[in-house]
Structure formats: C-alpha cells, structure tokens
Design a protein around this nucleic acid. Sequence first.
DNA 1: TTGTACGCGTTATCAA
DNA 2: TTGATAACGCGTACAA
Lengths: 338, 338
Amino acid sequence: MATFTSKDVARLAGVSQSTVSYVMSGKRPISEETRRRVLDAIDRLTYEPNAGARALASQRTKVVGLVVPFGVGVDTTGLLPFIETIAGAARARDHDVLLVTADEGSAGIRRLAGRSLCDAIILMDLQTVDDRLAVAANVRTPVILIGVPADPHGMHCVDLDFAEAARLAVGELAATGHDRLALIGHPADIVLRDLNYVRRFADAARSAAAGHGLPLEIIAPVEWGREAAGDAAARLAAIDARRLGVVVPASNTVQPLLHALNARGLVPGRDLSVIGLLTDAAAAEGEPPVTNVSLEPRDVSRRAMQTLFRLLEDRTAPPLIDLITPQLTRRQTVLPGP
Amino acid sequence: MATFTSKDVARLAGVSQSTVSYVMSGKRPISEETRRRVLDAIDRLTYEPNAGARALASQRTKVVGLVVPFGVGVDTTGLLPFIETIAGAARARDHDVLLVTADEGSAGIRRLAGRSLCDAIILMDLQTVDDRLAVAANVRTPVILIGVPADPHGMHCVDLDFAEAARLAVGELAATGHDRLALIGHPADIVLRDLNYVRRFADAARSAAAGHGLPLEIIAPVEWGREAAGDAAARLAAIDARRLGVVVPASNTVQPLLHALNARGLVPGRDLSVIGLLTDAAAAEGEPPVTNVSLEPRDVSRRAMQTLFRLLEDRTAPPLIDLITPQLTRRQTVLPGP
DNA sequence: TTGTACGCGTTATCAA
DNA sequence: TTGATAACGCGTACAA
C-alpha cells in the first residue's frame, strides 16, 4: 500500500497542488468540473493528507489532548464513559484524542502544548489545589478542566454540580422523614489527594443537613472492599436513630456497603436508607437497585467538548463554570416517607 | 507562554540550527562545550520540538494508534487496564497513544495509516473473522493484534492463551472430583459478533472435558444482570449431578451468577463449584472470593507493546503468535477434592 | 476560477 | 566537530 501526496492527486487530476488543497478545505470557490476531477483522483488514490504536514502548515493538529487519571493510584471506575464520550465528540468534528496519563503530572501538559501535539487539552481528576493548574494556565494551548478547583486560574470548568447532588440526597432523606444522617467518606488516598469534588459534595451535604435541622455524622475514611465496608456498617449500626439516612458519595463503596449492611440484618429500604452517588446504569444494576443521585459522565464530557470546540472553532464564549445538574432516581434503598 | 523553535535555541547558543537537532538526537558527535551551551539554551527557553515538523522530516510520529472497542455495544469492562498499560509502555519509550474507537471500523485504521498519524497500530477486540483485518494487513503502518483471529493475515498476535485457560479450569474441576460440567456462555451480542476468544475458550473447554471423560453442558447465551443470572442459576439447579462444576468465561457474569445461586440456596464452594475467567483483582474482591483463571490484561498489553517496539525500533523478530499463560488461583468457590 | 511560490520547523545529506 | 541547505507535504497569500 503506497502512500500518495496531494501532488500525486494534482497530477492525476491535471490541476495544481494548491487546487487539491482548496478542494479539500473548501476555502475557495472551485468549478464543478475540476472539483469532480480532484475528488475522483483523491478517491482513486485513496489519498489522505499527511497529518504532520498539515499541522505544520496550518498550525492545527485536529487532535485533542486528554489527561486521564491513570497511574496515580486513583479511582479509575467510571472513567471509561468519559473517555468514550470525549472520543466520540472529537470524532464527530474530525478530531482525534491523544491520551496522556496523569502520572506525568505537569510534564504531560508541557509536552502536549510545547510539542504542539494537540489543539486543546482536557484535564481531569483535579485536586482542590492542583500543581498542574499554574502550568496549564500558562500554556498557549487552551485547557478545559473537568472539575472545579479552588482557583481555576481563568480556565473553563465543566463538571457535575456536586453541591446540588448533595442537596438532592439530603433533601430526599429529609423529605422522607429521616431523623439522622450519615455521610460515608471516600478512601484515605482520595481524601489525601483532596480531589475537588469530595469537598464540594461534603460541604454542601453538611450545610444542607444543617438547613433541614438534621444531625449529620461523618464516617470516614472508608476504603474499598469487603472489610472496610463491614467496619462502616458496624459504625452505622451503632448509631442511635429512629430512621437513619446514609449518603454514599463514593460509587465504589455503595455495593459493598449494601452487602455489609445486609449481612448485619440491616436491610436498606426496610431498616434504614441509603442514597448513592453513582451512574444510573450502576444504580439500576445494584443488588438491590439503589436510589441514587446520578453522576452524568456523558453529559459532563459532552459539555466539556462543546466548550472546547466553541473556544477552538466557533469562537463563541462558553460559560467559565458550567455545572451539570444531577438527577435523583428513587429505587429500593430508601424508606418510604412516613 | 511563547513557543520557541530550534532556530531560537541555535541563536541563543550561538550555533547552527542543525547542531541543535544533532544535540537532541545524539546522532552525531558533539563537543562537550557546544553540547552544554545548546542544552542550556534549550533549558532556558523550555524548548520542545514541534511534533508535526519532526514527523514530517523524520517519517516518525512517536505515536501509537490504539483501536479500542468503544461504541460497538460491547463489553467494555476490563478495558481500562489494557489502555493504561499500553499508555505506560508507550510513554516509557517516549511515545504517545492516539485513541480510535472501534465504531469507525476499518475507516479508523485507514485514517491512522493514511494520514501518518502514528507509527504502529494496536487493534483490539477482534472477531474470529474480522473485516478490518484485510485493511490492516494492507497498510504501511505495522499492526499488532490483541487477539487471535482465524486468519491473522500475517500480522503479529498477542493474547491470553484462552485454550490453556479452559484446560486449567476444566482440569481443576476434574481433579476435584466433579462428575458434570456446565459452561456458561457469553451474552448473545458477543456470541453474534463472534469474538475470537469466545470460540477459542469454548472449543478447548469442550475437548478438555471430553479428555477427562466428563459431560459438559453449555448454558448459553446468558446476558448480563440479575434476571439472566437467575435463569442460568435455575438451569444449573435443574442439572442432575453429584458434584457440578461450572465454568464462567464471561467476567461480568460471575458475580450475578454467584448471587443467583446463593438466592436458590446453592452455595458455591459447598453445593457446587464455580470457576470464573476474570482478573485476580476482581476475583479476590468477589463475594465470596472466587476461584479463577486469570485474564492478564497487563501482561498481554505489555507483550503487545514489546512486540510493537521490537518491530519498530529494535528490529528483532518477535513471535508471530504470542500467548500469555493464565494462572489458576484457588479461592472459595470450588469444592475441595473428595 | 486557477496556478506559482513561499513558509511551517524538523531531519539528514553534503561540504568544510 | 560543525554549518549550509535540501527535502518532508501541506496551506495560503499573491498573481494571473
């Protein structure tokens, strides 16, 4: 399979090389006749423009850099929908996605921007205060954040509205007559890394509980897996409440905790309530199906890409902070109201 | 943040631009003195070579194209370790990873190769007979397959040895005195797509069972989720066996099936045996921990990247078909031998 | 409506 | 040991 250049196409079509270029870009009126001839030649040679040459000449790579939280010992569950949606949105506008792992830290961002490997960068998994932000903000390549750090350094942020998620969960438990709430914390490493959404959720949960006049106990940190869930269940069992409402913001903890509670004879939806923060898909597949506030990875990703292309091509001004509203879905783990 | 070129570096270091290039590539002896001056200038300008220009001149992109099974309505569980490991291995040799989703079909491969977007392609999630193979085999860019299709078209294949995995599972059940085996099938869409490993596993399981003189019943297809697992459990319960051994090659089905069996009062490890094909991590976290034959996504990915770089840079001949041997780990879901 | 010619930032060849 | 200089393949300003 030989590889052809626009010159080859030009020769075959009997036009100049620049005409080929203009046919492809549509940046100049072309007669129907030559247009046809060029497209035909392109077709016959299965010509594809060389990405490097194009990037060099046009200063556009048609590549989106995506910094994903690999290798930082972090929750990687639920990451796939983000990647998938971002890749899809990129393709829809003839862009590709270059993956960079977060364990590179700011070096990855410098490389993406410095080498002109991409036209824009999406940065995920932000800490509340993140070293990479200073670098990201000082780079020519536009950077979109998925997450809302304490100081966005002027960059565009897109994320789920975790504060609203907390309010929804607490509000539902308040409305169904619970007299005490417990908030299950994230694993220690997540808390230590101070991921931005942890704090956003917890703070809002606290003040929402206060607003409803409900005592809120924090059970934290809770690691993943059976044993930790067992311990947490024990601590929940020890709480003296008529109707206890438990909020679980760490998706991974939901299922093990439900099991652990069951094992203690505490049936969620009968003896106490559990609301989890997890995708609708995961919640519906739960055992039992769990009442949840949705993480909307697809919506968030789509919006991030929308912001990206508005910045890059449409040149309209997207909102600086763009929060997606989560949805509460009632399933089987919350006691019916009295 | 301005962006500098090698020309800027050259001027600052007081050398010619080609010298800068040679300092970076090390393809020519450079005096210690100028070498120092150049590196210093690079440092002061935080110079990074332009990827497009480099690719254009060197015919090397330092990018690996990865075709992942997004958007084909396919099992995407267990995909992350592949991506993660591949990205890590790429970075270790100063390469990046460009993601292409499988829903593009062969168009994605054509684009990667035609536009010279990458130096090599890794193709995952192969069907036994896969349309993309003809295209992949006819492209200048080397393609490495993760999976073993019926006809690899001369391309290099790396994968888990699914036949050996089946033999291990069946062998273990035979050794522990089971008198009847059941093989739980994959969901219908997987079977319909005829993914290469499905058949490799099933065929080997069948002949291993025959070799041990054990009757093997095929329960298929079994969709994911509660209900399907319940049905499968019912069919298993109906089997007339003294000691029934169940083999579950679809990772996702293991956990729901264990639950469904328990719900019927059939306790795996007490009343019957279950061996799953899933990663050690997933098996250990199972409820209960499940005896498994390991899928080794990390090993497979590492080997694929090793193959890739041997082809690309080391220029040594890797094996055409490279199979990783799975491991059997005894946990709690298999009856002890009599 | 189309062609010519230059520049994008590297790598690599040929001289010195 | 180093410096000019010609590709690499495409986009686009300038001419016609």
